[in-house]
């Protein structure tokens, strides 16, 4: 293995990612070549420096801050679940509603709904009846007017027939006329 090949494989050699045979060849070359070995040492030193200086420590107060935020958010959540204090008006309503069970309130609501429905239905029926009567009287009135018009038209037609019964081209005393061409 020459220096170029060795340096190409150096990073992979450090990470132990090369096949075993090439890994050994690189190792042998590093033992024999001072220049490549120096390169190898600088790379491993760089890795070691990164490793040693990579981690940092948290401030001692960081956990206190985290704990305080968790406790504050937990308090907020509990506060959000507590119902708001009722106003005097709200309290009065609560008392009224609290006197009867939900079944009683449900029955009352159903009865009210039924009564309102019936009232609406009767009103609709009355309105429909009134409309039927109005339409009926309108139709009767209209038929009567049409009948009168028809009768009037028929009388006029008869009168016209009488008027044109006489043939205007008929000369009654035709035979009495003298022949104008007779000499």
């Amino acid at each position: 293995m020459d220096c170029v090949e060795c340096q190409e494989n150096l990073s992979a050699h450090i990470e132990n990612e090369l096949p075993e045979s090439i890994q050994e060849q690189v190792s042998r070359h590093l033992h024999a070549c001072r220049r490549c070995d120096a390169e190898y040492q600088s790379l491993t030193t760089a890795d070691q420096l990164v490793s040693d200086h990579f981690m940092i420590e948290a401030s001692p107060v960081l956990w206190t801050r985290i704990e305080a935020e968790i406790r504050a958010s937990a308090t907020d959540r509990v506060a959000a679940t507590i119902p708001a204090k009722p106003t005097p008006y709200g309290r009065r309503l609560s008392e009224i509603f609290g006197r009867f069970s939900w079944r009683a309130w449900a029955g009352a609501a159903a009865s009210l709904g039924l009564a309102l429905g019936l009232t609406f239905f009767v009103q609709q029926q009355r309105e429909n009846h009134r409309l039927d009567q109005a339409i009926q009287s309108y139709i009767m009135e209209r038929d009567k007017v049409e009948q009168n018009h028809l009768q009037a038209d028929q009388g006029q037609d008869l009168a016209n027939t009488d008027e044109y019964a006489e043939n205007p081209f008929v000369i009654e005393d035709r035979h009495k006329m003298e022949n104008p061409f007779k000499l």
Binding site: S11, A12, E15, E17, S42, L43, T45, A46, D47, L49, V50
Partner: peptide, 17 residues
């Protein structure tokens, strides 16, 4: 990771030199 190591090693190697 491999590409990043090459860049970081090179940078630190230059610093050490």
């Amino acid at each position: 990771i491999h590409r990043a190591r090459l860049v970081v090693r090179e940078r630190i190697k230059n610093y050490l030199r």
